[in-house]
Computed example of a mutant assay.
Amino acid sequence: MKKATGELQRGRGRPRCFDQEAALERAMVLFWDRGYEAASLDELSAAMGISPSSLYAAFGGKEQLFRAAVDRYLAERGSYMGRILAEEPTARGAVRRLLETAADELTRPGQPPGCMVALGGTYCSPGARPVQDLLRGYREVWHAAIQARIQRGLEDGELAPGTDAAALATFYTTLMLGMSVQARDGASRESLRAAAEAAMRAWPGAPSGPQVSS
């Protein structure tokens, strides 16, 4: 049976009449701002405008809610990486645009500073290991995607033979994750863009002729 908009069915019982997407959005923002463990169930249910029992019935529990919130974050705020890596014609241009976009997104007004995937599982207790593993997995996917784009640039002759694509990817991924911490500490968009510009000056060139520009 097709569910009505904003209404979730509860077996044979009465429907839960709340907007699940809006509730999930509010939970995502709280997790993003506080992190997984610091966001209590009472705070989550209050932010979502539902009771703790409704939270469990709709999402299955705090960890399941966090996973759904991360999926929402990646589909919306964190969706730019794949697009940038695919669109830019050079690896250097892709990394530069990625860092500049990160500087903008990590400091965007009206939302928590920093990156939910970078910061949401920091300083968790051993019981939250599945959440830490989840977020680490996404960060590893990001590193692999950047490395693959750099490797393609190497194969296209954009970089000198022997360039360590893995090390270069680690360098720029580390910078991007560090920018998230800096944003949470109050760094401005301008300072993060300046850091990105400084990092791009470390980009290695081709073995002869001018470096590929972007």
Score class of each variant (00 low, 15 high):
35 G>K: 05
124 C>W: 01
105 E>G: 02
138 Y>A: 00
147 Q>P: 00
15 P>L: 04
165 A>T: 12
186 G>R: 06
79 S>N: 14
163 T>D: 07
81 M>H: 13
153 G>F: 10
47 A>Y: 10
85 L>Q: 06
25 E>K: 12
129 R>E: 13
172 Y>T: 09
36 Y>V: 03
45 S>I: 11
71 D>Y: 00
68 A>G: 01
112 P>N: 03
211 Q>F: 05
200 M>C: 12
65 L>F: 04
155 E>C: 02
11 G>S: 05
197 E>C: 01
151 Q>C: 00
131 V>N: 00
183 A>R: 02
137 G>I: 04
32 W>I: 03
106 L>V: 02
63 E>P: 01
74 L>R: 15
15 P>K: 02
139 R>Y: 02
44 L>A: 10
27 A>K: 08
70 V>G: 00
158 E>S: 03
88 E>N: 00
112 P>R: 03
151 Q>D: 05
91 A>G: 12
174 T>N: 11
42 D>K: 12
84 I>K: 08
86 A>M: 04
43 E>P: 11
174 T>D: 09
124 C>S: 11
170 T>L: 14
31 F>T: 07
166 A>C: 11
189 R>N: 12
119 L>A: 15
159 L>I: 05
126 P>R: 05
113 P>G: 01
104 D>E: 15
142 W>I: 04
31 F>I: 06
120 G>M: 10
60 G>I: 05
187 A>H: 10
150 I>N: 08
159 L>Q: 00
125 S>F: 07
46 A>I: 04
168 L>M: 12
182 Q>L: 15
179 M>S: 03
158 E>L: 00
150 I>A: 08
29 V>D: 07
142 W>H: 12
35 G>N: 06
144 A>T: 06
79 S>P: 07
42 D>F: 03
80 Y>M: 05
66 F>E: 00
116 M>F: 14
59 F>L: 13
195 A>Y: 02
118 A>G: 09
90 T>C: 11
196 A>Y: 13
57 A>V: 03
147 Q>I: 01
72 R>A: 12
56 Y>F: 11
22 A>F: 08
9 Q>L: 15
201 R>D: 11
12 R>N: 07
142 W>Y: 11
190 E>Y: 01
169 A>I: 09
68 A>Q: 10
80 Y>R: 10
117 V>T: 11
145 A>N: 09
73 Y>A: 06
54 S>M: 12
184 R>W: 10
43 E>S: 13
124 C>N: 15
181 V>F: 14
162 G>K: 05
87 E>P: 02
185 D>R: 14
127 G>D: 11
82 G>I: 03
23 A>E: 07
79 S>A: 15
182 Q>N: 09
109 P>G: 07
56 Y>D: 07
159 L>R: 03
81 M>Q: 15
